[in-house]
Design a protein around this nucleic acid. Structure first.
Lengths: 178, 178
DNA sequence: TGACATAGTATCGACTCGAAACTATCAGGT
DNA sequence: ACCTGATAGTTTCGAGTCGATACTATGTCA
């Protein structure tokens, strides 16, 4: 029983508590996670394959999860105009409402000081990025932190997609983040 | 998008990566967690109802999970001699082998210094205990940290069960921990 | 000897999950 | 224009989770 084993088990238990929070709203952990991802991802990163990559799952599985969320009226399909195979999802107003309600774990974090919380965030981020890299998975960081991002007075610019970004976009998750 | 939301999402992603580690051994996250719990719990805390409490699940669900682990030959049933309803489980040698192999996330923690790791452990423990308390769940801490524990030169003594504890027992999880 | 609590199991329906097969669409080369 | 192959999503399968409910067997207390 090492220290890292202990931390791993703490993380597992916390994730279970957190995932169970959405159950009262009729969501299981996978559905909560997909909904949260869609809420945080930018408009280039809301396709089924992106959700699958983020969650470390397969397109087939995520197809089912998105179908469940769609039938519950929490997300809506947006078809691409340039690629007729491509589908994107966005939260309905009901989806946003549900999401805001399922944050049971949040109050527990108040026990930590602002400094402890930011230290916690940094440590978890380091461990996550290392694991993702060693498993060949994408980081899905926010635009601001990306190597393709160039800051502008208002918002920024993505050098990979050659597109200007509004300020709100720069806070969102992106598949292309590197 | 608050800081606590971010930390929650980091925890979810890490837990998924960690849970998936056992899949190559043919275990799903729930099975991994139950196996890890049984490996860490003391002999008074290895009954199906204890596993259910630890995992925040129901006896019915855990009954199925334990059945799967039993059929895979990773745990063995031990019937109580004093209460014929009661069943307890312990790891087989095969179970211990499998458990030792499924620790994919561990190397990522090497990125953190010893100090950062212990700080991380402390913060997570605080948040977990707060959440558990506010949800009316048991902490499942190790004997050493329990209010019923009295240290002795070799091991200790449990004032609740009025039983001496070997040194190795004092490092194990207990249902009665308070 | 009840009445009731407790330990565990079985079953149901909705869902996850990986794997594999499948459809539709797009892109490159000839 | 045509064929080939890649890509985006969906469907289906079997094993399993999960909560809820109903069930059996055993223990406890009056």
């Amino acid at each position: 029983m090492t220290d890292t084993d202990l931390v791993r088990q703490l993380i597992s238990r916390l994730a279970r508590l957190d995932g169970d929070a959405g159950r009262s709203e009729g969501l299981n952990p996978a559905q909560s996670m997909a909904l949260e991802y869609l809420a945080r991802a930018n408009k280039f990163s809301r396709q089924p394959s992106h959700v699958a990559e983020y969650m470390g799952s397969t397109r087939g599985t995520i197809s089912q999860t998105l179908k469940a969320l769609r039938e519950k009226g929490l997300i809506a399909e947006v078809r691409s105009e340039t690629d007729r195979r491509s589908v994107s999802y966005e939260l309905t107003s009901r989806g946003r409402t549900i999401l805001a309600q399922s944050n049971a774990l949040n109050s527990a974090f108040n026990e930590l000081s602002a400094k402890e919380l930011s230290q916690l965030e940094r440590s978890l981020q380091v461990v996550l990025n290392t694991s993702l890299r060693s498993n060949g998975l994408k980081p899905f960081g926010v635009c601001k932190t990306c190597t393709h991002f160039a800051p502008r007075t208002e918002g920024g610019f993505c050098n990979l997609l050659s597109l200007p970004l509004e300020r709100s976009e720069t806070e969102k998750l992106c598949v292309e983040n590197a």
